[in-house]
Amino acid sequence: MEFKSFVFYFLSAIMLFAALRVITARNPVHAALYLVLAFFSASGVWMLLQAEFLAIGLVLIYVGAVMVLFLFVVMMLDINIDRLREGFWSYLPLGAMVSLLMIAEMALVLGGNYLGLLESDVPQTGAEASNVKSVARLMYTDYVYPVELASIILLVGIVAAVALTMRERRKTKAVDPATQVVVKARDRMRVLQMPAEKQD
């Protein structure tokens, strides 16, 4: 076996194990950490495909930011595991349907490629060509409108989230730093001249 395929099977085994533990781990924090491991192994597999931009992006965005926020939430929740496990059977049909749909989708994409039904549109680039550069060139020339549209949707999402969670401020004593830094000594302090009193 060639070294590359050894690395692939090694990473895939870890990824499958971690993905399995995500749904079987009892502790939600452990489950989130296994998800991190799964992301990390997936990024290794992508690296093998010479998709270094996607691989590093996965680590940078999902492992470095999204999963941290995920952990924040999971850690602060007071989760009762027994309550969570109730109603397993009533949720099963819905879950099974969703998973079947996902399997069908994956089969369409992967199987189509495998059986030669789709023309393969993955360009084979040499190891020297910078992946990031080619992705960026495509994104900002051919696909510039979809990219801009997606970023505007994200921006609207951010604004909406802020607007939804913004509450009317209660009266706080917090000082506005802008006014704080322009304060002069004479605004705060008055120096008085007082004649010394004689004591007889």
Binding site: F53, G57, L60, V68, L71, M75, S130, N131
Partner: peptide
């Protein structure tokens, strides 16, 4: 000497936060 070394550094250093939160 990889092409995306700056991205690599940003990705790797962003993992350090796990030590703190965990």
């Amino acid at each position: 000497d990889v092409n995306a070394s700056l991205l690599y550094i940003m990705a790797i250093t962003s993992i350090g936060v796990y030590g703190i939160i965990l």
